[in-house]
């Protein structure tokens, strides 16, 4: 009797959390298929009355949105690439080599993660204008690298410590050159960790808002999250909710697909810092 009740409770909880997690995403997808008359009325209906692709064609025709989408992809991809390379080198040193000051390096990394981005906006704005980096891709790529490096270093060094490095020597004993040993033995073992760090880095750069908003002035470098806040239609009292929702879907769905595809790796990467598993 008590067991049945516990089971029912578990399943109720299951449904509740499922709905709570998915509702905003499903809601915004439904919104993106609604026409302006429906969204202006607050769209009390959950599903669109007359589904339309109008918002999607509007978005595609919007040059500002297209530019910012290209910026988002380019900036996130380049920051991820550079950040992962630097983090791999540093994490290798932390996980594999023995040296004094390891604790200091890790503390600095943590301090960066702690630092409020808002406090950096003013000085960076000032400096970037002097250096001519304001409203450019490198102007966002550099701070994105700095902010993703700590997480990437932690994640990677946690992964690297699990690698049986003796295998490298074993391969060399068996006649492989050190490059071959690295290439054939270590790279395949390290790849999942590097991949996880790359996803987490890309995720940050793709979603970042404050710096994208303050360090850009046009769609030359502005990314989608910042561009969304400039998404005001002709009537400021009637924002184009449908288009806003559609733009949100366009930036959210790819990241959700990535996260679902690589869920196991991401969860492992997220928890590697906190739990020794």
């Amino acid at each position: 009797m008590g067991e049945t009740r516990a089971k029912i409770g578990t399943w109720l909880g299951f449904l509740l959390i499922l709905v709570w997690c998915l509702l905003p995403v499903v809601w915004i997808i439904s919104l993106s298929f609604k026409g302006p008359t429906e969204t202006a009325a607050g769209s009390p209906q959950f599903l669109p009355k007359e589904p339309t692709l109008q918002n999607y064609s509007d978005i595609i025709d919007n040059p500002d949105f297209k530019d910012s989408l290209i910026n988002s992809f380019g900036i996130a991809a380049i920051s991820t690439f550079l950040s992962v390379i630097l983090a791999t080198l540093a994490a290798y040193a932390i996980a594999r080599l023995d040296f004094k000051g390891k604790r200091l390096v890790l503390s600095i990394a943590l301090a960066i993660a702690m630092f409020p981005v808002v406090a950096l906006v003013g000085p960076l704005f000032d400096l970037w204008r002097t250096l001519g980096l304001f409203n450019t891709w490198p102007g966002l790529i550099i701070p994105y690298m700095s902010f993703t490096l700590p997480l990437a270093i932690w994640t990677l060094s946690a992964f690297f410590r699990e690698i049986p490095w003796e295998m490298e020597q074993a391969a060399q004993v068996d006649g492989a050159t050190s490059w071959q040993a690295f290439r054939k033995v270590i790279v395949p073992l390290a790849a999942p960790g590097v991949f996880t760090a790359a996803i987490l880095t890309f995720f940050f750069a793709w979603n970042e808002f404050v710096l994208a908003l303050s360090l850009t002035s046009t769609t030359q470098a502005r990314t989608v999250p910042a561009q969304l806040s400039f998404f005001v239609g002709p009537d400021p009292f009637n924002p184009p909710y449908g288009q806003l929702a559609t733009a949100s879907v366009v930036v959210t769905v790819p990241i959700i697909v990535i996260v679902l595809l690589f869920q196991r790796k991401i969860v492992a990467g997220l928890t590697s810092g906190a739990v020794k598993g």
Partner: peptide, 12 residues
Amino acid sequence: AIMVAWAMPAVT
């Protein structure tokens, strides 16, 4: 589902 909630950008 939980990871979907996590993946949703803060802005959207």
